[in-house]
């Protein structure tokens, strides 16, 4: 079942002024339930405008969007769409404002008008899910935590709303290598245990290739490619032209092909490349 359907979506900023810019032009795609959906595109390709449509932060101008079967055009659907699409924006720690971690995580659930026990249960669960021990962190001020911890608190604040679809924009940006890895592991865990449908925006083609089931490539507000990582990254030259590039494994494969090696499939992760290379070397051994 498709949880998100986007049909012929177009959007223009500052219409009929000298600053007019077409942010999105005729964008169509759908996201299936339980899918890990990647979105890539250069800065200014319309990614942010697109995701802000998904929970009606941007008012739709033309086209159609249905989230869980609800049209974003209907005003009465606004709340239920906002609560089913969880948005983790870039540098989400900058939205923290309460004096304790607990209160900040409870902000979303409170806005949902849940009762107190349910809010407490969700706050506890969300904090534990993001790897912050409730007893240790609940009463601390979010402002004195480390960068990585702050980001976890912000993510917990979204998770506590128990969204059906989790949208993450450059969630690992600005963290140190360890923090990066932890956050990416966390996303996988969240998908498995809490919110199976994930939309991930990233500039890192290696992350996207290893995580996403399907990838949407945007260029100048239009859909350039839509498909599995292999289907997308086989367009090696075009992806480079768009200044997005391809995963490292694909680059190495390309260099090997130029030297004369022949592969049976596109490799987008290190494991796939290893698998292919082993197959090739086994074949070589047979031929000798």
């Amino acid at each position: 079942m498709a949880v998100v359907e986007v049909k012929n979506l177009s959007f223009t900023y500052s219409k009929k002024t000298p600053y007019q810019t077409h942010a999105l032009t005729d964008v169509s795609f759908s996201i299936e339930e339980g899918e890990f959906f990647g979105i890539v595109g250069a800065t200014g390709s319309g990614k942010s405008t697109l995701i802000s449509h998904l929970n009606v932060l941007t008012k739709i101008q033309s086209g159609e969007i249905n989230v869980l079967g609800l049209s974003v055009k209907e005003k009465k659907n606004l709340k239920s769409i906002r609560f089913s699409v969880g948005m983790v924006f870039q540098y989400p720690e900058y939205q923290l404002f309460e004096d304790t971690v607990e209160k900040d995580v409870a902000f979303g659930p409170k806005n949902m008008k849940l009762d107190k026990e349910e809010i407490d249960r969700r706050v506890k669960e969300a904090l534990n899910l993001v790897g912050l021990d409730y007893d240790l962190y609940a009463k601390r001020s979010p402002f004195e935590l480390s960068g990585g911890e702050k980001r976890r608190v912000a993510i917990a604040g979204v998770i506590a709303m128990e969204p059906k679809i989790l949208v993450l924009d450059e969630v690992a940006a600005g963290l140190d290598p360890e923090g990066r890895e932890d956050i990416l592991k966390l996303i996988k865990k969240l998908q498995k245990e809490k919110c199976p449908t994930v939309v991930l925006i990233s500039h890192n083609m290696d992350d996207i290739a290893s995580l996403a089931d399907r990838i949407l490539v945007l260029s100048k507000g239009r859909v350039e490619f839509l498909g599995t990582p292999k289907e997308v990254f086989k367009n090696y030259d075009r992806m480079n032209e768009l200044k997005l590039g391809v995963p490292l494994a694909t680059r190495i494969q390309k260099k090997l092909e130029e030297k004369g090696m022949s592969f049976s499939d596109v490799c987008v992760t290190a494991d796939q490349l290893a698998h292919e290379l082993k197959r090739i070397s086994a074949k070589e051994a047979e031929n000798v």
Partner: peptide, 19 residues
């Protein structure tokens, strides 16, 4: 708390899988 650069990591994966 550091890691190899991407090229190093890729190579490590290849070597670990027997290449």
């Amino acid at each position: 708390n550091l890691d190899l650069p991407p090229v190093g990591k890729l190579k490590r994966t290849l070597v670990e899988s027997g290449i």
